[in-house]
Design a protein around this nucleic acid. Sequence first.
DNA 1: GCCAACGTTGGC
DNA 2: GCCAACGTTGGC
Length: 164
Amino acid sequence: MFIKMEKMKYWLFKSEEQCFSYDDLLQMPDQKTHWDGVRNYQARNFMRDTMQIGDVGIFYHSGGTHPHAIGTVHIVRDGYPDFTAWDEHSEHPDPSSSPLSPKWFMVDIKAEKKFTQPVFLKNMRTIAELSDMALLRTGNRLSVMPIGQKHFEILCTLGFSSTV
DNA sequence: GCCAACGTTGGC
DNA sequence: GCCAACGTTGGC
């Protein structure tokens, strides 16, 4: 008997803090949400093709004066059509997507644990082991991106440490 | 298929 | 508010 164990993958979920924050996620029923509204093919492909239930992620707040990672999440439902695309009243309607021919996909994530202290972007840039993280590349605009296990562990170590 | 114009993102 | 980066659009 062969049971294929897929290797757990690591992701970063980016959201503008004033738009949807980690605290907002904690307020959601069952602390879950669907990661809707992504209208970028590369991010779409990650969610549709690569993410799996059980993968874990870092939640990152962009847009503020001090961008930072703020907690961990895990994926509780893998890729399925983003139904907000054919809702004309949604934030990101796209008439070219339909239930019969969905163009955009999303996953469901659930909050895991909020960091005891945020890990600031400014701090990340000083850490050599994080230098190859996609988030730190200038001009990166993906709201969902893969990171390495090493990146995930370093961010958790910093975020859950009790001293600065 | 090329490429300039345009819109959006996001750090600073 | 500015500007760099980059994806998308549309004319040709």
